[in-house]
Amino acid sequence: MPSLPSPTARVRAGALLASAAALLSAGPLQPATAAAASSTAGAVHATAAVLDLDRTGGTPVVHGQDRAYDTASIVKVDILAALLLQAQDAGRQLTARERELAEPMIRRSDNAAAGTLWRRIGRASGLAAANRRLGLTATTGGPGPKWGLTRTTASDQIRLLRDVFDPGDPAHAALHPASRAYVRTLMSQVVPEQSWGVSAAGAGGAGRILKNGWLERSTTGRWDVNSVGEVTVGGHRCLVAVLTDGSASMSDGVSLVERTARAAVA
């Protein structure tokens, strides 16, 4: 007889599926273009980008085709960066209400909070304005309220992470030091059931400075599963972004992300 999943595994799976259901309940998430539904035929795709922060040069190594994927909830880091840039421009700190929204958006992947902040930054146009300053060149905000359908590439996610974790020349960083520290702190406080992903590539799987995203496509039943963050490998700090689509299940997508992350940093 096959063994039953442990209570911890059941809790993690239930929490992930509940979060995905909440994301879907925010509105129809299927993009209008055929390109965004690349998993329709059942193909599975994965792309990873890695940047070793402790080596010279700032060009990430990309594994796989650096094509565009739907972000699902990893866009929440970008939404927070845009919010912080707008606050910097106004010469102010985030308000108490903005922090009340930003913190669960990153730590618990709260979708309602993300929707509120998506509107506050000006939706796709506000995201685009921030991304021009952050150096992103291949990210397009989702239509209307559908922030989860933002499209991005693995290399663009490394550009975003670079500004957050190690901008190289701080004088040319878009985010101020306090803003960068705030994003890093929240990414290091994700709830345990969301600690899977690029963290699997770190030393002993330790640490979880990351943000994950997952979304089941209602037209195909296939899953978009993504993970971005910082890991330590062989004493080196590495930024890692893994984007995937077409997995048959959430667990398959998580396994694919973790295998891809480990292979990319090996």
Rank of each mutant, 00 (worst) to 15 (best):
S3D: 13
L4N: 12
L4Q: 12
T8C: 04
R10W: 09
A13V: 10
A15D: 07
A15R: 14
A20I: 09
A21Y: 05
L23D: 07
L23T: 15
L24F: 01
A26D: 03
G27P: 07
P28C: 07
P28G: 11
A35H: 12
A35R: 13
A36F: 02
S38G: 14
T40P: 00
A43G: 14
A48H: 10
A49E: 10
V50P: 03
L51S: 01
T56A: 15
T56G: 14
R67C: 01
R67Y: 01
Y69S: 01
D70K: 11
T71R: 10
A72H: 08
I74D: 11
V75D: 01
I79S: 06
I79A: 05
A82K: 01
L83P: 07
L84E: 03
L84C: 06
L85N: 07
D89N: 12
A90P: 04
R92K: 10
R92W: 09
A96P: 00
A96S: 12
L101D: 01
P104T: 07
R108T: 07
T116F: 03
R120C: 02
I121H: 05
G122I: 02
G126Q: 02
L127D: 03
L127N: 01
A129T: 09
A129E: 14
R132V: 02
L136S: 14
T137W: 00
A138F: 00
T140A: 07
G141D: 01
P145C: 00
P145R: 09
K146I: 03
R151K: 14
T153G: 12
T153N: 06
S155V: 15
S155N: 09
D156Q: 04
I158N: 04
I158Y: 04
R159S: 15
D163L: 05
V164E: 08
F165S: 01
D166Y: 04
D166N: 13
P167D: 07
G168Y: 05
A173F: 12
H176G: 15
A178W: 10
R180M: 03
R180A: 01
R184T: 10
T185C: 05
L186Q: 13
L186P: 10
L186A: 02
S188E: 11
V190Q: 04
V191L: 06
P192W: 13
P192G: 11
W196R: 08
S199I: 09
A200S: 14
G202D: 07
A203Y: 11
A206M: 05
G207L: 08
R208W: 14
R208H: 15
L210M: 12
L210S: 12
K211S: 12
G213C: 06
E216W: 00
R217S: 13
T220S: 00
G221H: 03
D224S: 13
V225G: 06
N226K: 13
E230I: 13
V231N: 10
T232M: 03
V233S: 15
G234R: 14
G234M: 03
R237C: 09
C238K: 15
C238G: 05
A241H: 06
L243M: 10
D245E: 12
D245L: 06
S247A: 13
M250H: 10
D252R: 05
S255T: 13
S255R: 15
V257R: 07
E258H: 09
V265D: 03
A266P: 15
